[in-house]
Deep mutational scan, measured.
Amino acid sequence: SLEEAIRRAEEALRKGQTFEYAGIRVTTQEALEKFRKWAEKQK
């Protein structure tokens, strides 16, 4: 689910890792916010 993907992205960010979902790379807090906004639109 998208909620699960967001949780995994947050977890990866805390560990300093890269999270990738549907071709979207989350490597920074800013990218995480963009990913969250994108995920909201997918619902």
Score class of each variant (00 low, 15 high):
10 E>M: 07
9 A>T: 01
19 F>L: 03
41 K>T: 14
21 Y>L: 06
20 E>S: 07
23 G>W: 05
24 I>H: 14
41 K>W: 12
36 R>W: 05
31 A>M: 11
37 K>E: 15
30 E>W: 07
38 W>G: 01
17 Q>I: 11
43 K>E: 12
31 A>D: 15
20 E>I: 11
9 A>M: 06
11 E>D: 11
43 K>W: 14
18 T>G: 08
10 E>F: 05
13 L>V: 13
17 Q>P: 02
4 E>A: 10
3 E>R: 09
41 K>R: 11
2 L>Q: 03
18 T>L: 12
7 R>H: 11
35 F>I: 04
37 K>T: 11
40 E>D: 11
37 K>Y: 12
41 K>Q: 15
1 S>G: 11
6 I>P: 01
30 E>K: 09
18 T>K: 09
7 R>Q: 12
37 K>W: 10
16 G>W: 04
40 E>M: 08
41 K>A: 15
36 R>H: 06
13 L>C: 04
42 Q>G: 07
19 F>I: 03
16 G>M: 03
27 T>A: 14
1 S>A: 13
5 A>K: 04
16 G>E: 05
18 T>F: 14
14 R>S: 14
21 Y>H: 06
5 A>C: 04
39 A>N: 03
39 A>F: 07
1 S>D: 15
32 L>F: 10
29 Q>N: 09
5 A>D: 03
34 K>N: 12
21 Y>E: 04
10 E>G: 05
4 E>L: 09
7 R>W: 11
14 R>M: 13
11 E>H: 06
43 K>M: 15
38 W>E: 03
15 K>E: 12
34 K>M: 14
9 A>E: 00
27 T>F: 07
14 R>L: 12
29 Q>H: 12
17 Q>W: 10
9 A>G: 04
30 E>M: 08
9 A>V: 03
4 E>Y: 06
13 L>E: 01
41 K>H: 13
38 W>I: 02
6 I>E: 02
33 E>T: 07
10 E>Y: 07
42 Q>R: 07
43 K>S: 13
22 A>I: 06
1 S>M: 12
18 T>N: 10
1 S>E: 14
19 F>D: 00
39 A>T: 06
30 E>P: 04
30 E>T: 09
31 A>S: 15
12 A>P: 00
42 Q>V: 13
12 A>E: 05
30 E>I: 08
10 E>R: 04
32 L>W: 04
38 W>S: 01
9 A>D: 00
7 R>K: 13
24 I>R: 05
7 R>F: 10
40 E>V: 06
31 A>Y: 04
26 V>K: 00
10 E>S: 06
12 A>T: 06
16 G>S: 04
15 K>R: 13
16 G>V: 02
18 T>V: 15
36 R>T: 08
36 R>K: 15
20 E>P: 00
23 G>A: 04
20 E>K: 04
2 L>K: 02
8 R>M: 14
22 A>V: 06
21 Y>R: 00
12 A>I: 04
4 E>W: 10
20 E>G: 02
19 F>N: 00
15 K>G: 11
13 L>P: 00
26 V>N: 01
3 E>L: 10
43 K>L: 15
19 F>A: 01
31 A>E: 15
41 K>V: 11
4 E>I: 08
33 E>P: 00
43 K>Y: 14
35 F>K: 00
28 T>E: 04
8 R>L: 14
34 K>G: 11
39 A>C: 05
3 E>S: 10
5 A>T: 09
8 R>T: 09
21 Y>A: 03
22 A>T: 04
36 R>E: 05
5 A>Y: 09
8 R>K: 12
18 T>P: 14
16 G>P: 01
17 Q>R: 06
9 A>S: 02
33 E>R: 07
29 Q>M: 14
24 I>M: 11
37 K>L: 13
32 L>R: 00
9 A>R: 00
5 A>H: 06
28 T>S: 13
14 R>I: 11
2 L>W: 15
1 S>Q: 13
41 K>G: 15
11 E>F: 02
11 E>T: 06
18 T>D: 12
2 L>I: 10
7 R>Y: 11
39 A>S: 05
7 R>M: 12
23 G>E: 04
15 K>D: 12
33 E>N: 09
39 A>Q: 03
2 L>G: 02
5 A>V: 14
7 R>G: 09
17 Q>K: 09
43 K>G: 12
24 I>E: 03
9 A>K: 00
38 W>D: 03
25 R>D: 06
40 E>G: 06
32 L>M: 07
1 S>V: 13
41 K>E: 15
7 R>A: 12
35 F>E: 00
9 A>P: 00
34 K>H: 12
1 S>F: 14
15 K>V: 11
38 W>N: 01
12 A>S: 09
36 R>V: 14
21 Y>D: 02
15 K>M: 14
22 A>R: 09
15 K>N: 15
23 G>I: 01
27 T>C: 03
13 L>K: 01
33 E>L: 08
19 F>T: 01
11 E>G: 04
7 R>D: 07
16 G>Q: 05
15 K>T: 13
37 K>V: 13
31 A>G: 14
22 A>M: 15
40 E>A: 08
10 E>H: 05
40 E>H: 08
26 V>E: 00
24 I>W: 15
11 E>W: 03
20 E>T: 09
22 A>H: 13
37 K>N: 12
43 K>R: 08
26 V>H: 02
20 E>V: 11
19 F>H: 02
28 T>F: 03
21 Y>G: 02
35 F>T: 00
5 A>R: 03
17 Q>L: 14
27 T>N: 13
31 A>P: 00
39 A>I: 14
42 Q>W: 08
5 A>S: 05
30 E>R: 08
2 L>E: 02
2 L>R: 03
11 E>I: 09
19 F>W: 06
1 S>N: 13
26 V>R: 00
28 T>A: 03
11 E>S: 07
4 E>V: 08
16 G>L: 03
18 T>Y: 15
7 R>S: 11
43 K>P: 11
37 K>M: 12
24 I>T: 04
6 I>K: 01
18 T>H: 13
